[in-house]
Design a protein around this nucleic acid. Structure first.
Length: 596
DNA sequence: ACGGGTTACACA
DNA sequence: TTGTGTAAC
């Protein structure tokens, strides 16, 4: 349920930018033959022609709609071009659209605070940019207003005869309020941004410009495609008065239905009749206040400064005859999903230096003779370890745990109709994070100076520093280099040392739950993950690096520098390792920074 | 046999 | 906190 946020007192300029039938545009850019012709994007062609997920504007004229089947759409529009979503590992692969969305974000984020709201939508907070413009180049002093800005639709600006001239007058009105002048600047800035997006990506978009996110979002689809709509504060009461509640974001589902059915509220204007107290009585304190405010066009939600998604997920449904009925088929599909997830979080790490900390598994299931069909398959999560095979292994364990809970030790047939895995709790790697590998290569690998996965290939450049940050300034705590091992006659064992250390540090073992946190080695979770990622970038480290990662020889620990030895011994030793079977009983789990 | 596949968020 | 439900595109 929605919640009201505290509002700023100063007026803001907020834009919501929405790509027009985005997937279709992406496909039309890829194949220009599709330009100007009725086009739709479908996934999975084999059953009834696939499901439509995006419909171009030419096709909409024929009555083609989302959530039609391909066959159906072809009936109403025989010339319709149906493009299939790429398939990888047996499932829809949306990466083409994700990266196209990133192109757009990269452009839009240059003009102000930018929040990626979805694969094809962003919010912009243009307040500061608009303020500067008003000071340095106010519209009323401008010789020419950009053509695209003149094409704006300004709510409450009656006529449509001399539209562009009226809009120009509105944008340049010398007697307007400060907040309306800011909004006019916002409209010009957004027009320029949209033109820039078109030039640099070939994509058109529509936008709403208003004083808050809710109104901007409401306005962006009002004139599509490739147009923008401005919402002056003065237009808001009339706008909302006749607006069906279901049109408001957050009221499109059950809450909106409840307003209609339980309170007889059909338009946002109808909401004005209810006191805040009354709405709170019905919907609780938070949602009640939220409703009271949105009825008046008030929304304090801030535009967050975030260009990247907060989580990654991938899933697939297995309807009807495709239902998964064996653990082996589940394992197969989980493996596919986990491979994709692994690729995506690895790219995120490589490109954005971000690490996902939690792995989650979702499924939908039924029992054959279900007396309680409402029982759902429980979601399960655990600490996320990098590397496709580790993710696969963990996801399968989560599934089995969920399945036994779901079946409740009853011996009945079951079926899985959907599977999904997700990676969440994504954090930035702090600047200066270094890899344990520096101990052996004298190559200081730092997240702010190079790609984590490529770091090994770099020339030596920095001096070796200590493993623990608190000793960074202390020359005596520097670790020995590879040559130091050589001089001690350790070269033949070095391989195993590496394997041992890396294995532990990458968090790929299990620990007992009573492992004391006093023994925690001074390595942050994300540092361990970087290392794990480095290991995983070498599928067969034995060939590439000259050591066997699977071989653990406790005796080599004797030969390590004392401080390392102490930490490793105090941390965990193979002989001490106990697999409790408890979910999430990994080293990563118990030593993650969050649970000190 | 389902709009599918993703995201984000509030609540308990 | 983990897990659940709602909502959006």
């Amino acid at each position: 349920m929605p919640v009201a946020r505290p509002e700023r007192q100063e007026p803001r300029v907020i834009a919501h930018v929405d790509m027009d039938c985005f997937y279709v545009q992406v496909e039309q850019r890829k194949n220009p033959d599709l330009r100007g012709v009725p086009t739709a994007v479908v996934q999975y062609n084999s059953w009834k022609g696939g499901g439509l997920i995006a419909v171009g504007y030419e096709a909409r004229k024929f009555g083609v709609k989302r959530s039609m089947r391909g066959d159906e759409a072809k009936r109403v529009c025989p010339d319709l071009q149906l493009v299939q979503v790429p398939v990888a590992r047996g499932k829809a692969d949306l990466n083409l659209y994700r990266s196209a969305g990133s192109e757009v974000v990269a452009i839009l984020s240059k003009k102000g605070k930018c929040e990626r709201a979805s694969i094809d939508e962003v919010y912009l907070d243009l307040t500061d940019t608009a303020k500067s413009m008003l000071l340095e180049a106010p519209p009323e002093g401008l010789d020419s207003i950009p053509e695209e800005a003149l094409k704006s639709h300004v709510l409450g600006l009656g006529s449509d005869a001399n539209k562009e001239e009226d809009v120009r007058k509105w944008l340049c009105r010398p007697d307007a309020d400060y907040e309306e002048k800011l909004l006019a600047c916002g409209a010009i800035i957004v027009a320029e941004l949209r033109i820039r997006v078109l030039h640099e990506t070939q994509f058109t978009c529509s936008a709403g410009i208003a004083h808050n996110k809710m109104l901007a979002k409401l306005a962006s689809p009002m004139h599509k495609p490739a147009q923008q709509t401005v919402v002056p504060a003065s237009s808001v009461p009339d706008l909302l008065a006749s607006l069906p509640v279901k049109k408001m974001k957050q009221l499109g589902g059950k809450l909106g239905s409840s307003l209609q059915d339980d309170l007889g509220v059909n338009t946002v204007g109808d909401l004005l009749k209810f006191s805040e107290q009354k709405l709170q009585d019905y919907y609780g304190i938070n949602t009640g206040t939220w409703l009271w405010k949105i009825a008046r066009g008030i929304s304090g939600d801030e535009v967050e400064d975030r260009l990247l998604p907060k989580s990654h997920g991938c899933g697939k449904t297995f309807p009807g005859p495709m239902t998964l009925k064996t653990t082996s088929s589940v394992k197969h599909w989980l493996n596919q999903l986990c491979e994709e997830l692994s690729d995506r979080i690895q790219s995120d790490l490589d490109q954005n230096k971000r690490i996902a900390q939690t792995l989650t598994l979702h499924a939908r299931a039924f029992k054959e003779n279900d007396l309680e069909p409402q029982k759902k398959f429980p979601s399960k999560s655990c600490a996320l370890r990098y590397g496709a095979s580790k993710i696969q292994e963990d996801a399968m364990r989560l599934f089995e745990s969920g399945l036994s809970e779901f079946l409740n030790s009853k011996n009945v047939g079951w079926g899985i109709t959907s599977l999904a895995v997700g990676a969440s709790k994504i954090i930035d790697i702090p600047n200066g994070t270094t890899s344990i590998l520096k101990y052996f290569n004298e190559k200081c690998i730092s997240s702010n100076s190079s790609d984590c996965s490529d770091a090994l290939l770099e020339e030596p450049n920095h001096t070796v520093t200590s493993i623990s940050k608190r000793d960074d300034e202390n020359p005596k705590s520097r670790a020995p280099t590879e040559s130091a091992f050589h001089t001690k006659g350790l070269s033949d064992k070095n391989a195993n040392v590496k394997g041992t250390i890396l294995r532990y540090f990458s968090g790929s073992s299990c620990s007992s739950s009573n492992q004391s946190s006093a023994n925690k080695i001074d390595l942050e979770e994300h540092e361990r993950t970087v290392i794990a990622s480095e290991l995983n970038s070498n599928p067969n480290p034995n060939n590439n690096w000259g050591f066997n990662i699977e071989e653990i020889d406790p005796s080599v620990v004797d030969e390590l520098p004392l401080e390392i030895q102490r930490e490793i011994r105090g941390w965990i030793h193979p002989s001490k390792r106990i697999n409790t079977g408890k979910r999430g009983s990994t080293i990563a789990h118990y030593f993650s920074p969050a649970r000190n």
